[in-house]
Design a protein around this nucleic acid. Structure first.
Lengths: 339, 339
DNA sequence: TTCCCCTTTGGGAGCGCTCCCAGACATCTT
DNA sequence: AAGATGTCTGGGAGCGCTCCCAAAGGGGAA
């Protein structure tokens, strides 16, 4: 049975209200009284009751992180772990708590949505959704629940933070061009995800910037899984590319397997570049050249943005914030640059 | 401005109390009335206010997951992602929410502990701590906060779920013995973590069971990081082992690097076995033989156990539950069994 | 018929906090 | 000296729910 404000007040010889003021840092308390109250709080280990506070103040100091169903299968991807680390970092410094929801059941998404988001449990949410047409966005907008998306979104009302997928992909492909490659293939990610689209766009931009025609035969569609990388590569082999840009490291690993099976050496016969810089990329044989995303910054920026929205005047008329973090090319062995 | 019980009641022509009974499935409501109330709830999308509910009922339907500081650096490890997936699965089926806390600041751990655990925000917690002497345990016990530990703990009051690290390690080493190895080295994990200790114990047990003397020269201490695997392997080289059991796949990868640099082939010159079966283990060259833990079952079992504790009579006199899940040897190329 | 009991319903009293208003003084002002 | 400020403090009135008790009404037993 923890103490209440009232009881702390009695111990310190003041009222409930004064203790509340002290706890919340309200200035109009005499120094001497404030000190006495803190003393009691310290001695007793008093801690305000979160539910009571949130009932009375209409805010919970909790934000949610929502990872929709489609993504949660990919949850093992270190991406989410890093993202969560960035998010919790920001939460810790702002004294917020984090509620994690994986939307597992596609069936009654509406029901789950209601239970989780309309119970007043969280002040705002971060959504890590890859599908821009996820039905959650209209709902969040309609309920005017403050939210920030991790990933690009076309709706002008959506606040988001994203990595510069286009620029990252362009860097990767331009690096291959600089190394003299002209027949550069790509294995794309899922094309109805923003990251899949954007990385393909970056590939195309790089080629066009160097007046290299974009050829359908050099574009293999994948879905970010390793096996789609292998299959994509196998299909691309007939076009005999001298270099391949895989839209994710995982797919690059799949491609590597296909190349090995075709007795092609990397980078001697085919140069390979990935995207993501997952932890094993450096440990592969050959070490994978790839594009690194500042994932935990992505998380902390998204959280910062959301907390900002919550703390400062939530001015509905202000335009939505769109933050793009730049990616970085990490040159290793698989592109042949170091030979 | 969401509706309240009172307002739903007015719309349905009944009182607050009746609506509450309907929402909570209390039996003593006339069927006709119940139906009418549900009708209104469905039409209006009414959702009870979590804070009010939790204030009045003294329970929040939220459990916490605490990952202490020492571990959060390793958070990128897919272990935690899988564990979280298991946990959220169990939470979703029981209608609980999950609050995630990474204890980042070792400095004021006491302060953070208080803020997070004594605010009444969660009904119980899962602790993913690797250090058995983590100061959090005495605090949790003293505050009698229901909790379940993921990982072994000697205190008889602690409920825990763990993987059979001893048995897993023994399996791995016995497999090497069966393949004819006698000079089997090990690179240990951090030795004040239960998993580090236990895997070493399994290694020793396997040797002893086959009357092979345990030699200090064949035991290299690591700390679960890749570089400690490399360094450990380098030190062990002078003892010229024919096989190595690394207490984690990540360390096995480090060891692989050291072996390569020493121009030793795996598995021809030295057989190598890891532990964990992280996703890349299969993709390594050679594919790594390792021990697989049922990580997401670990998470779901821990959550189930905790929710059980919360839902059913929290009988303080009942002995703590200790659940051990068995591990499984995954034979691939690096141990030489397939040659 | 009268009484008792059982089912169903309504309302009061909190849960522990925040927010606001008013009161008690002390300090200025004119 | 009297009023006008200003500073600090206490208490009332909720926040939206649960829990309990009591009341209303119906049915059966005596």
């Amino acid at each position: 049975m923890p103490l209440t404000l009232e009881e702390v007040g009695k111990l310190a010889g003041v009222s409930r209200s004064t203790v509340s003021r002290v706890v919340n840092g309200h200035p109009s308390v005499r120094d001497e009284v404030r000190e006495r109250v803190w003393q009691v709080i310290r001695e007793t280990g008093y801690q305000p009751h979160a539910a009571a506070r949130s009932l009375a103040s209409r805010r919970s100091q909790v934000i949610g992180v929502i990872i929709p169903e489609a993504v949660s299968t990919l949850f093992v991807d270190p991406f989410f772990a890093l993202l969560l680390r960035g998010i919790t970092g920001a939460c810790n410094t702002h004294g917020y708590q984090l509620m994690l929801s994986l939307f597992d059941e596609p069936a009654d998404q509406g029901e789950t949505y209601r239970r989780i988001l309309r119970s007043g449990r969280m002040d705002g949410v971060l959504v890590a959704s890859t599908h821009m047409n996820d039905p959650i966005f209209p709902k969040l907008l309609q309920d005017s629940i403050p939210f920030v998306l991790v990933g690009r979104h076309p709706d002008p009302r959506v606040n988001y933070v994203d990595v510069d997928n286009v620029g990252g992909a362009r860097m990767a492909v331009e690096h291959l061009i600089r190394l003299g490659h002209r027949r550069i293939a790509t294995i794309t990610g899922t094309l109805n995800m923003a990251s899949g689209e954007d990385r393909l766009a970056g590939y195309c931009q790089a080629l066009e910037a160097h007046r290299i025609p974009v050829q359908a035969a050099l574009i293999g569609e994948g879905d970010f899984t390793k096996s789609s990388g292998t299959m994509g590569m196998q299909r691309l082999l007939s076009a005999s590319p001298t270099a391949v840009f895989a839209a994710s490291d995982v797919m690059a690993m799949g491609a590597l397997k296909a190349l090995r099976e075709a007795s092609l050496r990397v980078p001697e016969d085919v140069a390979l570049v990935g995207f993501d810089d997952i932890p094993v990329a450096a440990a592969l044989e050959p070490a994978l050249t790839t594009v690194r995303q500042p994932i935990d910054r992505l998380g902390s920026m998204a959280a910062d943005l959301l907390l900002n929205l919550l703390e400062n005047a939530p001015d509905a008329r202000a335009p939505a914030a769109r933050i793009i973090l730049s990616a970085r090319l990490i040159v290793r062995d698989s592109c042949g640059a170091l030979h």
